[in-house]
Amino acid sequence: MTIRILIADDEALLRMAFSMVLDAQPDLEPIGEAGNGADAVRLAVELRPDVVLMDVRMPGTDGIEATRQILRNCPHTRVLILTTFDLDEYAFAGLKAGASGFLLKNTRPEELLAAIRTVAAGDAVVSPRVIRRLLEKFRPHLPDPAATAPDERLSRLSSREREVLVQVGAGRSNAEIAAALHLAEATVKSHLGRILQKLELRDRVQAVIFAYESRLIRPS
Rank of each mutant, 00 (worst) to 15 (best):
N73P: 00
T61C: 12
R194G: 04
L192N: 08
S159E: 13
P150V: 09
I131D: 03
A115N: 08
L47Q: 12
P150L: 10
Q69C: 03
A99D: 06
L87I: 00
S127E: 12
E161Q: 15
A99R: 12
A184E: 13
T187S: 15
I3S: 01
L95E: 07
K96I: 00
T107Q: 10
F138W: 15
D9W: 03
H141K: 14
V208R: 11
R42K: 15
L71Q: 08
Q69L: 14
A99G: 08
E136P: 00
P26M: 05
E29M: 06
L199M: 07
S220D: 12
V126W: 08
A211D: 05
P150N: 10
E29L: 10
D55Y: 10
R133N: 12
A186H: 11
A207Y: 10
S155V: 07
A147R: 15
S19D: 05
E176C: 06
E213R: 15
A180M: 10
D86N: 15
L82S: 05
G122F: 03
A114V: 00
R108M: 08
D39F: 03
L28M: 14
E110C: 01
E111M: 09
P109A: 06
A186F: 02
N73Q: 15
G101I: 01
I195C: 07
L135V: 10
P49Q: 03
V126L: 14
L196V: 00
E213M: 11
L28C: 07
R72P: 00
V79Q: 03
E33K: 13
L28S: 08
L43N: 09
P219F: 08
I31Y: 07
P75S: 11
V21I: 14
R215D: 11
D55V: 06
L71K: 10
T83H: 11
R117H: 04
V21A: 12
G37H: 04
E152L: 12
P128M: 06
R68E: 09
D144K: 14
T84L: 10
F18Y: 15
E11A: 10
P143R: 14
G35C: 01
L165V: 04
T77M: 03
I131C: 03
E110L: 06
S190L: 12
D23T: 12
R156T: 01
Y90P: 02
A34R: 12
T84G: 13
